[in-house]
């Protein structure tokens, strides 16, 4: 099943999970118009992990909102061949009155799954994020890293649909590890790679951190700021040496940021 958003455009290929072509997004009107995104072309293949890298004001959150269908582009098209995207924020944003298990069950409940199915799926997902024995705990009884793992399990649950069993799932992650301490972040990155290998969703991951982007992404897309444009893309494979790649990307990122200095 393909979902065309905003304009009736056929996807070019079924090998595409998300496609943005010539996407422009303006906020405001007349003289006060602010261009957040200016002609962004981006594709995400099924099961691909794409990292969006950029400084503040590069329109990362705007881009995620467009893909999540929370907002419409001013021009261009956004096409999605996936189930409803799940979003993960910097804040775990768990419901404080629900347990770990019922937090994971919440999107399943909203999607109309029966109680037994919800229980089984939530238990399975908590097991996947290594929180098997913690299902009865409330958010305030969990550490920051554990809360973020519950949020990841909930995001994975949110990709489940009653009707679409075979659909490609899509995760949109808005700097999910930015608020964690360095050690926890390192472990969480490892866990995310493992879980991505196990479940193969398409991922659009926004970050400020070059190392994080290089470690996680199959492809790294560098965006410029105000307005957001795609500056360059790097593709990684098994033979890529991560050290020089990190240096290269960092140099380009610095270059892009320097152009914004006040003259």
């Amino acid at each position: 099943m393909s979902v065309n958003l905003h304009q009736r455009v056929r996807p070019q290929s079924t090998d595409v999970a998300v496609q943005l072509s010539g996407v422009v997004k303006n906020f405001g009107r007349g003289e006060h118009t602010v261009t957040a995104l200016d002609g962004v072309d981006l594709t995400v293949a099924p099961g691909e992990f794409v990292c969006l890298l950029g400084a503040s004001g590069c329109g990362k959150t705007t881009l995620l909102n467009l893909v999540a269908d929370l907002d419409a582009p001013t021009a261009g098209t956004v096409t999605r061949n996936t189930s409803r995207p799940a979003v993960m924020f910097q804040d775990a944003a768990l419901m404080p009155w629900l347990t770990a298990a019922t937090n994971v069950e919440l999107p399943l409940r909203l999607a109309g799954f029966s109680r037994a199915e919800r229980r089984a799926k939530a238990a399975e997902l908590l097991e996947l994020v290594r929180l098997g024995g913690q299902d009865r705990k409330r958010p305030h009884e969990l550490s920051g890293g554990m809360r973020q793992r519950v949020a990841l399990a909930r995001a994975l649950a949110a990709t489940h649909r009653l009707d679409g069993g075979e659909q490609q799932s899509l995760l949109l992650m808005d700097e999910p590890f930015a608020a964690l301490d360095a050690i926890t972040r390192d472990v969480m990155q490892g866990e995310l790679v493992r879980i991505h290998d196990a479940t193969k969703p398409s991922v659009l991951f926004v970050t400020h951190d070059v190392r994080e982007a290089v470690r996680l992404g199959h492809r790294i897309v560098l965006l410029s700021s105000r307005p957001g444009r795609v500056v360059r893309e790097w593709t990684k494979d098994e033979n890529t040496d991560e050290g020089p790649l990190t240096d290269d990307i960092t140099a380009r990122l610095r270059e892009v940021i320097s152009t914004h200095a006040a003259h």
Partner: peptide, 12 residues
Amino acid sequence: AVGAGLDALDTP
């Protein structure tokens, strides 16, 4: 193992 250790240390 590292994750489990962190969980044990960081749990309130």
